[in-house]
Design a protein around this nucleic acid. Structure first.
Lengths: 216, 216
DNA sequence: ATAGTATACGTACGGTGTACGAGCCAGCGA
DNA sequence: TCGCTGGCTCGTACACCGTACGTATACTAT
């Protein structure tokens, strides 16, 4: 049995850039971006650390490719509907995807050159707006505004220390409120109580803000 | 001359948590968050690496403290004006501060427990909205929406590979356009050209989107 | 003088990204 | 069939990272 066949037993297939990057995304989803090291990634692929460098020039490039995979998962604005619904759909999809890969939003700050999926995405969004009659500069304004909202929302969502309404209730009682003396933070106390009482659903919250964004 | 006095010659003052964190912010501003290591930070302070741990329990805590310093720099909503102007002022200030410390936005994703300045800030904003007559839940909605826009805008701004309109023009010609075949990306080409022609000012762009945010 | 505490740091350990070069092997021209 | 080449894999090594641990010094209170 050759060494290559042994590897295939261990990892189900030969390496490839695709496989490396996909596994990296999976690892980051599971353990966070700090838990993603070349050695651990190689281990997950049943390979030696240095083998990865045949498919990826550096860890930087790997991170870039991971981000581009995330963009690939976001739905493009559908062409068959009016532009408002199209923008909505892709915004909702973007939030879902970014919530699935919370590490991605934190990576974007440091990665300045967009990958191909990112470019395709931007092109599709701009096309949708332009075809709906937006003047060129107005289309870029709308793009900035919508992306700002989506990214910012995802960022806040990622930094929430709870995932469900129940967890929120628990943490509010055990962690937040003890930190918030009512005389110093009366309004935050009030808000926390109201939030716990009303329940909190990020998807709803997202739609609410989206509706208040005047472009749509 | 005592060891302490020698250190003071090298670094102008004894250590303190304040001094450590402030210098860390300065270092991150200058070299990016990846260039911030405990050893380099200690070097900048004229101290040994392990001395820092007397003022900071871990690098994580240092990063938390750095973010809180950033929040400290953001103007609180002024109390003497109407709530719209107050929200605007603090949003504009937040963008400026986050543009000054681009690393901060990328750190927020991973840091889940807000520091004291952050809390004070949120309290002040919520107070402003509540006193203006917002119902409790509406105030948190408005908070989410505005923060989303501000953070998302800052994130996009941080990931721009240029700082001035001139740099934009240069990079568009030398870097972007060659990457964007006009037949594949017609609308992005159009946008790039229009942007270069019109010039680009993030502060203006920010205000434009802020105006379209229906809460205000 | 003595004890205790606050401050500073040297050393060392296990981790990181990755440069370098050696090995393996399929495929191919002779 | 031989030998070579080029793609692929990986072991080793280096510089750097965060930080556990122990120690040295200076200052304060007794």
């Amino acid at each position: 049995m050759s060494a290559r066949e042994q590897r295939q037993v261990a990892s189900d297939a030969g390496l490839s850039k695709q496989r490396v990057v996909v596994e990296a995304v999976r690892l980051a989803d599971r353990e966070g971006v700090d838990g993603l090291s070349m050695r651990r990634l190689a281990g997950a692929l049943g390979a030696g650390a240095m083998s990865l460098y045949h498919y990826v020039a550096s860890k930087e490039e790997l991170l870039d490719a991971m981000i581009d995979i995330v963009f690939e998962e976001i739905e493009l604005p559908p062409e068959e509907t009016d532009w408002q619904s199209a923008m909505r759909r892709r915004a909702v999809s973007a939030r879902q995807v970014l919530a699935r890969h919370p590490w991605a939003i934190g990576l974007m700050e440091s990665r300045t050159s967009p990958g191909p999926a990112n470019l395709r995405h931007r092109e599709a969004v701009t096309a949708c707006l332009r075809r709906a009659g937006f003047p060129v500069l107005m289309a870029t304004h709308a793009n900035w505004l919508l992306d700002s909202y989506v990214y910012g929302f995802a960022l806040q969502e990622a930094s929430l220390p709870f995932d469900t309404a129940d967890e929120l209730a628990d943490m509010a009682e055990d962690v937040f409120l003890p930190q918030l003396p009512p005389d110093e933070f009366p309004y935050l106390n009030e808000s926390a109580a109201a939030l716990v009482a009303a329940g909190y659903d990020p998807a709803e919250e997202f739609i609410f803000g989206l509706d208040l964004t005047a472009v749509l």
